[in-house]
């Protein structure tokens, strides 16, 4: 395996970790709101969150490119802040990956919150726990399987992305060249051996992830 291959693996892991952590932070309140609101906004927001599930990644990438570009609102903001433009940078890739993997984190969390229901919160309130206290000491522990599923799916899905990366990140070694792009480059250059090796790594990774997830869910069925 070449140094460039290892660099791509390292970059992919870094990207997936950062994206997963940020998504957990961002999606927890969003999923909580979606699970409990009776607002009329629930349906449109839910649909918006689910869009990346069915949109072609190139479409997401294209719009994000415009959004972050010199004419786009985020582009103008980042430019004004002195960060410069985000496309073809690691930060841009992080933002794009967050959009792309959003439903994979929101939906398991939302399901977990919905399954907990209203009752444990009411019990906690009558046991003197403030809403924040209840969330921390009742909801979070009860939703642990949901957080595990959300992290695994968010991470794995980010590792596997290609279309969005190509549109937003290009193929800059150490910056935006993740495994899937590296495999593509190998195939373009007819280096089937190297492509095989990296592809096998991703294949094994996906299998292990699904196996773990299955085991974990089984272990939590009777809880």
């Amino acid at each position: 395996m070449s140094g460039e291959d290892l660099g791509a693996i390292w970059l992919t892991l870094k990207l997936a970790t950062v994206v997963t952590l940020l998504l957990l932070l961002f999606c927890t309140p969003l999923a909580w709101w979606l699970a409990r609101t009776r607002s009329a906004w629930k349906a449109p927001v839910g649909a918006l969150v689910a869009m990346p599930l069915i949109l072609p990644p190139t479409v997401i990438g294209f719009y994000l490119l415009l959004f972050m570009g010199p004419q786009g609102p985020l582009g103008q903001l980042s430019d004004w802040l002195g960060i410069g433009l985000l496309p073809f940078t690691f930060s841009g890739l992080v933002i794009a990956s967050m959009v792309y993997s959003l439903p994979f984190v929101v939906q398991p969390l939302q399901t977990a919150f919905e399954q907990i229901g209203q009752r444990p919160l009411e019990v906690a309130a009558t046991l003197r726990a403030s809403p924040w206290d209840s969330f921390r000491h009742v909801v979070l522990p009860l939703a642990r399987p949901g957080f595990f599923t959300a992290s695994v799916l968010g991470f794995a899905h980010t590792v596997g992305e290609f279309g969005v990366v190509l549109m937003i990140g290009g193929s800059i070694p150490g910056q935006t060249k993740v495994i899937s792009v590296q495999i593509y480059d190998h195939v373009e250059a007819m280096q089937y051996g190297s492509a095989h090796l990296l592809s096998a790594v991703l294949l094994a990774f996906s299998f292990v992830v699904l196996l773990l997830l299955h085991r974990y869910r089984k272990g939590h069925l009777h809880v």
């Binding site: 444990p120 009411e122 309130a125 009558t126 809403p131 206290d133 009742v138 009860l142």
Partner: peptide, 20 residues
């Protein structure tokens, strides 16, 4: 005054023990 600031105890129809 929200429930957690009222000095009362409440027993629900189903025991609703915390599963964790």
């Amino acid at each position: 005054r929200p429930p957690h600031l009222r000095p009362l105890g409440y027993v629900f129809q189903e025991a609703s023990l915390f599963a964790h």
